[in-house]
Design a binder for these strands. Structure first.
Lengths: 193, 193
DNA sequence: TCCGACTCTTGACATTTGTCAATGGGGCTA
DNA sequence: TAGCCCCATTGACAAATGTCAAGAGTCGGA
């Protein structure tokens, strides 16, 4: 299973044998059941994990409401970015939505790899650039004005998630409430027929 | 003026003398007048620039509407991230709002520095992480439901920008229209008195 | 100085979205 | 199977926001 992680990192930059060995020994495989917490609010996010199999969502609480911030399925990196970056307690929860297997490396191990293997910074840089790229895309969805535009954008960007995620979570991800999403969907699908 | 750039990068990671020299020779200072375009839609963003003095905004066109995506003032890095990262033509315009002086390095020079000076990847990684962090914050504003919440969030995050930016641009940045922002402001300021 | 362009504000009204409440269906367990 | 919980949908109504139009203020150029 670690092969999936190595392959992913290799795509960013070819890994030397020594670095490959180091990554392999630092990586811990963890499996969460649907409903388990991978991270809770108030904790420092001290790891970064590749999703090998399964699906998770991150969310935060704003005025008693649960707001979904990201969905992370196979091939995505799970981390609570603000907390990971600052190493301060964050406001995000991360929850497994399905049985989810992760390949995880500790923050401190990652930092040691950065200093012991300078080329690992290339991998880290490219991963951060990619994450930034995705964050920009998420932001563009939310500046769209109507609920229908947002839903269409979601459909085209995440065609498979619709089947796997509760609609109420998609609604908060898109910055609208559950009923509005439901109405958009029924209107939208009537149109198509 | 290049000192400001070197100081900024030094904060991410101490730069060797050789790297400092290389950065200095690769950096070009450019000054734009208010209203000038730093980048246009359809161009590949082939540079990254530190704002030494001034203010710029990036925006894109969505259904004939001009949507502001970021404001970049002193100390911020200007680049059209998606286009820079993919090296494909992007959909963003970047426009100087005031007379703006930039310290710019070409994409290809940056890539050469990554390979010639491995430790420069540390700088690049930290810069990308920081950019990611900022993007997450921008996204959280937009998931707030009411216009007033968004405006208050903007005020607390960007207290100085209000004086320097046209309100219509702040409105599109917050995903609302100009009139709504105007009403929120008059209601909000009445409350405070 | 005057004019025009632009920005911001305000009003009236239409549309969209949120809120609250009720309903039905699916899946789970006793 | 019955009962329960959770999810999604729908209706009625309230609240927020968008649209269109008008007008006041500012600034710069002719």
């Amino acid at each position: 299973m670690i092969e999936a992680l190595l392959e992913r990192l290799n795509k960013f930059h070819p890994l030397s044998a020594a670095l490959t060995e180091r990554i392999s020994s630092a990586t811990k495989m963890v499996t969460y059941q649907a409903g388990d917490y991978i991270l809770k609010e108030g904790q420092v996010c001290n790891k970064a994990c590749l999703v090998i199999k399964g699906l998770a969502r991150s969310y935060y609480i704003n005025e008693d409401k649960d707001i979904t911030s990201r969905f992370m399925d196979e091939g995505f990196i799970i981390t609570s970015w603000i907390s990971y970056y600052t190493q301060q307690p964050g406001n995000e929860f991360i929850e497994a939505l399905e049985e989810t297997t992760l390949a995880c490396i500790n923050y401190s191990d990652i930092q040691k790899m950065y200093s012991d293997f300078p080329e690992f910074n290339i991998v880290g840089r490219k991963q951060a650039e990619y994450g930034f790229f995705m964050a920009e895309q998420r932001t563009q969805i939310l500046r769209k004005h109507t609920a229908e535009e947002k839903y269409k954008f979601f459909l085209s960007n995440h065609p498979t998630l619709l089947q796997r995620v509760a609609l109420k979570h998609i609604a908060t991800y898109l910055g609208m409430n559950e009923e509005t999403l439901s109405r958009v969907r029924s209107k939208f699908h009537r149109k198509k027929v």
